[in-house]
Design a protein around this nucleic acid. Structure first.
Length: 1036
RNA sequence: GCCGAAGUGGCGGAACUGGCAGACGCGCACGACUCAAAAUCGUGUUCCGCAAGGAGUGUGGGUUCGAUUCCCACCUUCGGCACCA
């Protein structure tokens, strides 16, 4: 086994030792031992999971990859190595471990490559995934390869289709709060009609998502009079997998519809193209029905807080009320509806609703528009429709809108408020119409300022700050002195170019009232002064008629006040509202608007209602009067699953004359046909549409859309439990034993989509009785990204590291690292590189560092007699202590995902062994025990070298079937401890004391220490504090 | 703007519950071995200071005998969301 290339390096020692103990003399050559053991493990099927049994199970899963032609980089291994270490650890701890791998094989990149290379995606899939398997094996990962999954194989997607059908054949019964067979719904409709269901939805705010919006009610009689086609169409409003016409995001580059989740900043996630709007009939999953459970059940999982937040945010639950506004004023009598319903989370601000805004797509826009405004409104609606999402959401975009000239009646005070159309109101959220409360909503505030709409505060500022600007020469002499006397905060500064004014800030109602009194007596004739913020008061000169203090408490007051101001001070004549006038003064800007909860004001009989109960009380009152009710709203939309592409799971539906119908389960799998061409069609239809034998069936035209890959990945983790079952997606025994996944590890980029979809499928399958758990992934962890090792500079001179990518030519592959340094060194460095969750650049000098550690392990195990260093003091007791302390630290850190410190602990242990050797301990029983522990601890991290050394030490194969070492608590205990002596919190000395020493003795020893005496300077200790086992702090 | 994470040597990073800041590794310096180099081994390596000593965990405050750790305010970087009523 003398290596060829290394013989010259090796010569001296090799020749000498080879003759006597050839096995001891070998150098560590991973390139030889790694393939050898990998072949042996594979032959012996060493990592195969046992069938469900009495043993406790541990299911540890990596996010399965999308296999690409580029293969893996060292960045991908950041995910796979730590989970492999855990899998190996749990096996040694006696668990039956499930650690499988598979491929998310369907999807666009492969299809696009196939089109470009004029080859078949089937072929590419096989090639790519085989390459991945090769790379995985190269790294010595202990997957159970007998469970390999490929989602593009028909023995897998058959069951994806099967689950699709179960979802298609279900609806969400809000009364059971669970999915139920669609047949139950049909029965109910034929016996009782839809009344009970809609009544329930109406009175249970959380149930909004169970049926398509605006589904018409039917009576039993109507239902029974429907033909099959009409019934099928009606049921689509309830099915959990349904087809509906909708505006979708169209990616003109990939020629495919993409989901909301796949659009980032108006651009398609994969292709980067600006998405366009298109109306197509599409397949969806009714994930909205599960919104509440998806949100609530997040409480039951051990996931990173960040991911939980992102999911909750995506679901976007908000509680509020729905309020009906009568359409009125003028001669408008709508034949469609006599009211507009708005959704608000702030029913407590209803009295401040001074206008209403409809989304440009709102069906009542043309109803409320008067003839004279029609042209303007239609032009605006056309403009809004033409906008891309990106334009519409552009950050700096100023609000736009147009008045319809129609009015609505605010139900709480009968006020007649104008109805506007503006694109800042989205049709897809709430009811597509809002009541605008400009005093307490930032968007409405901006809009009202721009268009001169009145802004009336109806919620008190919780912090009682008010401001007042005293205009130059608007008050009599002595006012300033009075302010000072009253302790009021103010400063003097020029007001524009009209002279020096006083900028007053008031705190608390008492001070404000005092200020008003003062102002009333000092205000000069033909002047006014305003107090804004905590109170909204205008003090006018009393001598004029109707003078005194006016409050800005209504639209009428706004008009009155403004009129008087204009009369007194003409420069303000162009202002349309008081708020607009105040907004011109920068001094006031931070007190004009607030969105906090607070005491209701200017709200009729509700004035004075405290902020914490206001919402609730108003909602109850609205409900009693029949003009509103509690309502919960979710941001989450139906999950778009259709793709008009070839390379995906075919949707098992036939379009019959009677509507969309399910394939019979016996017809599954519905295979993807082999075809010559699979370029997207010009029309945007799936290429499958052009394959007549596929499309044409005796029952009707086959659905030609395929499913997005999110469907495949929504259940693959369940298939691993029983991957070869051809009777069902999985056996009951297997799923109950293995699921849920105990530890799921992957990148944070799937925080919303994959994890949310998987959770929904799990809940549907749970409701239908196929699985016994409500959450699929008990614990989740995200690994950090690995960046390229090269530092770059951006235009501003900031240094940064870029992501590894083939196009940038900076990819480092596991292949090259393994070839150079071996898989064990790569594994060690993947763990050691950084904190697991941290994004970090790859370091090319890091792997050799770990390699050196492995070399040291090799030497200390095989040839402890060589190269003795300086003799040291090291007892057998200490050796045992280090060994057992290492076991402790290793387990504690490993279970906390502290992989880097696990490796560090192993390095320290190895260093200690060298010291022990120098002290002459090699060969003692304690030494042999320590070496045994070292190898067992190394096994999960560096499985090849551990196996090789284990075998060379004469132990029976395999180390990977050995139990994990058990901590000897007695050995761990120290006999002596080092106590730090501090004087006034600064370390001044260290003393050695026996562990058993009492507190008093230790304190005395500390006081007597040289360091302490020197720094106490002869002063008596004021306090002596002892922290057990750690330190003594002497305070003087 | 909102939400989240993080700021510690030349670098990656440690420090479990408030108790020795800088474990472990990289890099660097010096030394040993060598004709020499590589490899290996040893020693040192936060900063200032010859030293005694002092300063020091993004900044400024606070709590405490004692703060990288807790509290308040702020700055910077990264990630996510973004007109969601």
């Amino acid at each position: 086994m003398v290596p060829r290339a290394h013989s010259s390096l090796y010569g001296r020692v090799g020749l000498f030792v080879c003759e006597e103990r050839p096995e001891m003399a070998d150098k560590y050559i991973p390139q030889e031992i790694e393939p050898k053991w990998q072949a042996r493990w594979e032959k012996d099927d060493l990592y195969r999971s046992a069938p469900p049994g009495a043993k406790p199970k541990y299911y540890i899963l990596d996010f399965y990859p999308y296999p690409s032609g580029e293969g893996m980089s060292v960045g991908h291994a950041r995910n796979y190595v730590p989970t492999d270490v855990l899998a190996r650890y749990y096996r040694m701890k006696g668990y039956n471990v499930l650690h499988p791998m598979g491929f998310d094989a369907f999807g666009l990149p492969t299809e696009n490559t196939a089109i470009k290379l004029k080859t078949s995606p089937h072929l590419l899939n096989e090639r790519y995934s085989a390459n991945y398997v090769r790379q995985y094996k190269l790294m010595g990962l202990s997957y159970d390869w007998s469970r390999l999954i490929n989602t593009a194989h028909d023995d897998y997607y058959r069951w994806t289709q099967w689950i699709f059908l179960q979802i298609f054949k279900s609806w969400y019964d809000p009364r059971k709060n669970a999915a139920a067979p669609i047949a139950d719904l049909e029965r109910e409709l034929s016996e009782h009609g839809s009344q009970a269901i809609f009544d329930y939805i109406d009175t249970h705010a959380e149930a909004v998502g169970v049926a398509t919006k605006d589904t018409p009610p039917v009576t039993a009689q109507q239902w029974n009079g429907m033909n099959r086609r009409e019934r099928n169409d009606y049921l689509m409003n309830f099915r959990l997998a349904f087809r509906a016409e909708s505006v979708v995001n169209w990616d003109p580059v990939d020629k495919v519809v993409v989901a909301d989740e796949e659009v980032e900043g108006g651009r398609a996630w994969r292709s980067g193209a600006l998405v366009e709007k298109k109306v197509i009939r599409q397949w969806f999953f009714r994930i909205t029905a599960y919104a509440d459970r998806l949100s609530d059940d997040l409480d039951t999982v051990d996931w990173p807080e960040k991911i939980v937040k992102m999911q909750r945010n995506w679901i976007g639950k908000s509680e509020g009320a729905e309020v009906k506004f009568e359409i009125g004023g003028g001669n408008l009598h709508s034949p469609v509806s006599d009211h507009i319903t708005v959704f608000t989370t702030r029913p407590d601000t209803l009295w401040g609703a001074t206008f209403m805004v409809l989304s440009p797509e709102h069906p009542l826009v043309s109803e409320v528009t008067t003839p004279e405004q029609r042209a303007a409104v239609e032009a605006y609606v056309a403009f809004a429709r033409g906008e891309t999402d990106e334009q519409r959401t552009a950050e700096t975009k100023e609000k736009t809108g147009v008045f319809t000239s129609g009015y609505a009646i605010n139900p709480v005070n009968g006020a007649r408020i104008p109805i506007w159309v503006a694109d800042y109101v989205l049709m897809g959220y709430g009811t597509g119409a809002i009541m605008a409360v400009p005093a307490h909503d930032e968007r409405d505030f901006a809009f009202a300022l721009k268009y001169g709409l009145p802004i009336i505060p109806v919620i008190d500022r919780p912090e009682r700050t008010a401001k007042s600007l005293v205009f130059p020469s608007s008050v009599r002499e002595g006012f300033r002195t009075e302010l000072e006397k009253a302790g009021i905060e103010f400063y003097a500064a020029p007001v524009g170019n009209v002279g020096e004014g006083l900028y007053v800030t008031l705190h608390g109602d008492e001070q404000i009232d005092g200020y008003v009194t003062l102002m009333r007596s000092f205000l000069q004739p033909n002047n006014w002064n305003e107090i804004v913020g905590a109170k909204w008061l205008f003090v006018f000169d009393d001598s004029a008629s109707g003078g005194g203090v006016q409050a800005l408490d209504s639209v009428e007051a706004d008009r009155r006040i403004l009129q008087r101001c204009k009369a007194i001070y003409p420069p303000v004549r162009d202002n349309r509202t008081v708020m607009e006038m105040l907004n011109h003064l920068p001094f006031y800007r931070d007190v004009l608007f607030h969105a906090e909860y607070g005491r209701m004001i200017n709200s009729g009989s509700f004035t004075g209602t405290p902020g914490d109960v206001a919402r609730q009380r108003v909602t109850t009152w609205l409900t009693e009067r029949g003009v509103g009710k509690r309502r919960v709203n979710y941001k989450i939309r139906a999950w778009l699953i259709s793709r008009q592409r070839y390379w995906g799971t075919p949707i098992p539906i036939v379009h019959t004359p009677d509507g969309e119908e399910a394939l019979d389960e016996s017809e599954l799998p519905l295979r993807l046909p082999d075809v010559e061409h699979y370029e997207p069609t010009a029309t945007g239809e799936s290429p499958l549409a052009e394959i007549r034998p596929f499309v044409e069936t005796p029952r009707g035209r086959r659905e030609t859309d395929t499913m997005a890959t999110w469907a495949c990945s929504s259940w693959y983790y369940m298939r691993f439990a029983d991957p070869h079952n051809d009777q069902a997606p999985f056996g009951q025994k297997e799923i109950a034993y293995w699921m849920p996944v105990d530890m799921y590890v992957g990148g944070a980029e799937h925080a919303v989509m994959h994890l949310l979809y998987s959770r929904m499928w799990t809940k549907v399958l749970y409701d239908l009785g196929y699985v016994p758990f409500i959450e699929p992934f008990k614990a989740l962890r995200n690994q950090g990204l690995i960046l390229s090792p090269q530092k770059r500079m951006d235009e501003k001179g900031h240094e940064f590291y870029e992501k590894m990518s083939k196009s940038k030519g900076n990819v480092i592959t596991p292949d090259e690292v393994v070839a150079e340094q071996g898989a064990d060194a790569l594994r060690g460095y993947e763990m050691f590189i950084s904190d697991f969750e941290q994004t970090v650049p790859w370091s090319t000098s890091g792997v050799p560092g770990v390699r050196r550690w492995l070399e040291r392990v090799w030497r200390i195990v095989l040839a402890p007699e060589e190269d003795r260093g300086q003799p040291t003091e090291f007892s057998t007791r200490e050796l045992r202590r280090v060994a057992h302390q290492t076991i402790q630290k290793y387990e504690r850190d490993l279970l906390n995902f502290g992989f880097n410190t696990v490796v560090a602990a192993m390095m320290e242990f190895t260093n200690a062994l060298f010291k022990a050797r120098d002290a002459g301990l090699a060969g003692t029983p304690e030494w042999n025990e320590a070496i045994d522990i070292l190898l067992r601890l190394a096994a999960p991290i560096a499985p090849h070298i551990a196996e090789e050394l284990w075998s060379r030490k004469g132990h029976p194969y395999s180390i990977h079937q050995q139990p994990f070492p058990v901590v000897d608590e007695a050995a761990v205990k120290e006999d002596e401890m080092t106590i730090v002596v501090q004087v006034n919190g600064k370390v001044r000395d260290r003393i050695q004391v026996p562990v058993r020493a009492g507190e008093e003795a230790i304190k005395q020893a500390a006081l007597a220490s040289d360091g302490a005496r020197r720094f106490m300077d002869g002063k008596p200790p004021r306090q002596v504090r002892y922290v057990p086992g750690r330190l003594v702090n002497i305070v003087v």
